[in-house]
Design a protein around this nucleic acid. Structure first.
Ligand SMILES: [Mn+2]
Ligand SMILES: [Mn+2]
Ligand SMILES: [Mn+2]
Ligand SMILES: [Mn+2]
Lengths: 218, 218
DNA sequence: ATATATTGTTAGACTAATCTAACTTATTTT
DNA sequence: AAAATAAGTTAGATTAGTCTAACAATATAT
């Protein structure tokens, strides 16, 4: 049995390596920074998780999950995204409120619970942020999506997911009229800073490159 | 913010004093025994909870909740019973499976979550074990119920709740055909050991006094 | 190839929650 | 009232998870 803390490390490693990422390995500082702890603390935990056979750890090397660790991390991701879907679909939470609560709910230990919840929700494939939900074997629906910042000028696309779950970002996204499935037309791209002029519905908005790096589109 | 452990102590004290109980105070050994820990550990925690203003604790005295501690304990009880209702009503759990999972779910910190859950469930007044659910002010619906063991011979009554949430007890109750709202006729009471011969539906069963002490009826 | 900056580890300390063993206080029995 | 039993506390140890400060290894820039 893993503690909530150990589970959070595994999920963090999954995010930093496999998910939305080209890299296969995560540095200790990077991990610590992601979790809001100090590198010294991460080193200790990495050793512990290595002992449990969940992480490949070598002194001064890079870290990544073993297959066993990855399996657990995927189960956590599944739980997280199913709970988010529950909160959004059934309890009328807004999409900026769900992540924090799901961060706690994902640690509830009951396989029956999560499978029944999945059934109750109608086996959803994507969560309210547009992220794919692993099935009960850990398989994630493949998505061929790209980032808004990589779209060329004058192209038209559809928002399918957000890359960032922070409250401030999500509120901002909603506020300019964007939601999952919104159509976006790129009217202009500023050479200087990469900011974009977008047409969303009947309004236009200028967004920063940083913003555009956090919107997935097809 | 309280830890899960601290919350469990408060809920235990509520159970040992106010709930299903005439006593107003709980001994340290009694508390430790209820929680499955050692008395020394309970002493430490009682001191800590006293510091936080949640428990009245005096060396070698009896323990009970302060109003502030009781309020928190009632919120936990509300969460526990609402989650049990959710698992039973929406996710098709059986009544012997819900307690353990709710023991974890009750610690999720979100007032909005629990109030939305309450709404989603249609503001239930009783949980699947027949226990009253406190409202969002901590008010518990009054129930005038008694124990099956205190019913006289030849009387007829209706089961409204169970006093014990253990898996083994609940399975046994179901197995002899009893459920919330079952009608029971007391055919015979054995002087020697207080065991009872009951008529349930079209069957008769002999149950021990201990069993009859754990069934609430009206 | 050397110096500098970045990254990661170790050592030592702290807090929360638990235990065992020894001790103290309170209650019950004779 | 003394002895025996039960109940409760204290002291000291352990484990998990965290920190800071000092140190070590690796990577980068001259
Ligand atoms: Mn989490
Ligand atoms: Mn999500
Ligand atoms: Mn609990
Ligand atoms: Mn119950």
């Amino acid at each position: 049995m893993l503690s909530n803390t150990e589970e959070n490390y595994l999920k963090a490693l999954l995010h930093l390596t496999d998910l939305n990422s080209i890299k296969e390995q995560a540095g200790t500082n990077e991990l610590a920074n992601y979790l809001g702890i100090k590198p010294a603390t991460a080193t200790d935990m990495l050793k512990k998780l290595k002992e449990k056979g969940l992480v490949d750890y070598e002194k001064y090397g890079k870290n990544n999950l073993t297959p066993k660790g990855k399996k657990i991390a995927l189960e956590l991701l599944r739980k997280h995204r199913l709970w988010e879907t529950f909160l959004y679909e059934k309890l009328e939470f807004s999409w900026d409120e769900i992540h924090e609560v799901a961060e706690e709910l994902e640690h509830i230990q009951s396989e029956k619970l999560i499978n029944k919840l999945d059934q109750f929700l109608g086996y959803p494939q994507y969560d309210p942020h547009g992220d794919p939900i692993p099935d009960n074997k850990g398989k994630i629906p493949k998505t061929k999506r790209m980032l808004l910042c990589d779209k060329p000028i004058d192209s038209v696309c559809k928002m399918v997911a957000v890359k960032n779950n922070s409250v401030s970002f999500l509120k901002y996204v909603s506020q300019i009229g964007l939601a999952i499935n919104s159509n976006i037309e790129i009217l202009e791209i500023e050479k200087f800073d990469g900011s974009m002029q977008l047409k969303i519905g009947d309004q236009t908005h200028r967004v920063s490159r940083k913003f555009a790096e956090n919107i997935f589109v097809i």
